[in-house]
Amino acid sequence: MNKDVTFALSSAGVGESVARGQLDRGGVAMNNKPATFTLDGKTIPFSAGQTLIQAAMAAGVYIPHLCYNPEFKPHGSCKLCTVKADGRHTSSCTHQAQDGMVVESDTKEINDERRALLQMLFVEGNHFCPSCEKSGNCQLQATAYEIGMMSPHFDHFFPDRPLDASHPDYLLDFNRCILCSLCVRASRDVDGKNVFALSGRGIKSHLIVNAKSGRLADTGFSGEDKAAHVCPVGVILKKRVGFAVPIGSRSFDEQPISATPHPGPAAATLPPHPQGACPVGPRSNAATLPPHPTVKDV
């Protein structure tokens, strides 16, 4: 009985899609017409091996994404590029196009899910756009505009993530990291330096610098590196050019991200902020003060 059920499932589902995918859906249809799929009703041509997002971008159709960058092997982690392909949720940056596939992307259902993902990214880090030199050039911000994210919705984590301003030319502000791994991929695969890595698991995942001290100054990182130019948010920032282009005149102030086919991360940075614990003076009356209430105590 169990065997029969398994066989029935595989022949109706997985087996069928593998057969269709490998034999007659992989780029050229049987009748030698160029292979196509539909994206929100629009016919998109593709060549063998192309992913859904590659074919969509080539056709000038925007699918929201953050960890995907056409220059790099896909990572499939941010899930912003999720679409419904033949009724199933999948990352369009990793899913190969198949002939006749019906893909939905710009729908209320999927955009609502994308908005929730964006809101989680915003509350997990510290994203204070008014004081961020990347504002206006930031793909996270621009994608949130595109999806119409009016509020962060969830409770904020307000994590403590100290800056690394040790490098003479570059600043790392980990508060804004969305774990897209583009700097990891660029440093490893293009620069051959392995300066960055993602460490920890789950909510403890974080970006680390591959040096004994953990400081960027103690790595071979340089402004010439690919890794210096791929951050989609405001983590890896060139010093002393932060407001060379004023807020209000930046890429996504001029046009929405959906009209910017390959948003190039424009380097924009602030000088480093002084860090360090506040010194405690010798005659403090702190011990005599009442405890400070949390918002739940009021």
């Binding site: 915003f122 994203h127 204070f128 008014p130 004081s131 509020s151 307000f158």
Partner: peptide
């Protein structure tokens, strides 16, 4: 909306 500058 998100605490803004004071929340820093």
């Amino acid at each position: 909306v998100n605490g803004g500058l004071p929340a820093q």
